[in-house]
Design a protein around this nucleic acid. Sequence first.
DNA 1: CGGGATCCAAGAAGATACTG
DNA 2: CAGTATCTTCTTGGATCCCG
Lengths: 118, 118
Amino acid sequence: MEKISNDCLQKFKAVNDVKDILSGKWKVMIIASLSVFGEKRYMELQRIIDGIGTKMLSKELQELEINGLIKRTVMDTKPITVKYELTAYGLTLTPIIDEMASWGIQHRERVIKEMSAK
Amino acid sequence: MEKISNDCLQKFKAVNDVKDILSGKWKVMIIASLSVFGEKRYMELQRIIDGIGTKMLSKELQELEINGLIKRTVMDTKPITVKYELTAYGLTLTPIIDEMASWGIQHRERVIKEMSAK
DNA sequence: CGGGATCCAAGAAGATACTG
DNA sequence: CAGTATCTTCTTGGATCCCG
């Protein structure tokens, strides 16, 4: 008779895990960048993600790499360049990003409506 | 020729909006609690969400209320009680929570496999 | 270019005590 | 019970300099 409760708890804890993995101010946006725009270089990420500094970018990229969500590749170009991309595992986050994106788009429409309603 | 780029940017910004609205260490877990378990009281939320203190709980609940995602109702019981629940708008976040939950569950299975593989 | 190291300011968050 | 107020601690993150 507590079957439902256990399922809910399971679900709740699962959300908590995702929270932990995507904790940090910028991780979701890094994933979103790589998910939406595809493979990017360090500098490009910094330009895309508004307001992020080199320190935080490096730190969160490393944490994401440790968790196996992104892959870091050093290219042997004249001045060295590094590209980042989602791993196969990181790509499985796409549905979450997509859900967030579509919700955000609807949210914008809602906000616009509210403003014009005044 | 920059049509695709604009769509991507739109999408990216939309994700960013969601980030902002769900910013803060506990907001996602509060939403998840109310989504998974349904209407809850202040104290119940504090018990469910491991580690949260009264200060953060109050603060983030207020912010969520301001954003129209949750509804706060004061019940006139002997010792006063307050219940929180998702608004119709807050309920639209359910798909995101569900995606996170199912990803988290698969993530757990993966971690378990990795450990037993050793 | 892609970072690492250091220093420092600001804000987020915890603990505790208190109130209606 | 449901918070608020206060104080302290910890984390975040910005700025800067440096290195391969």
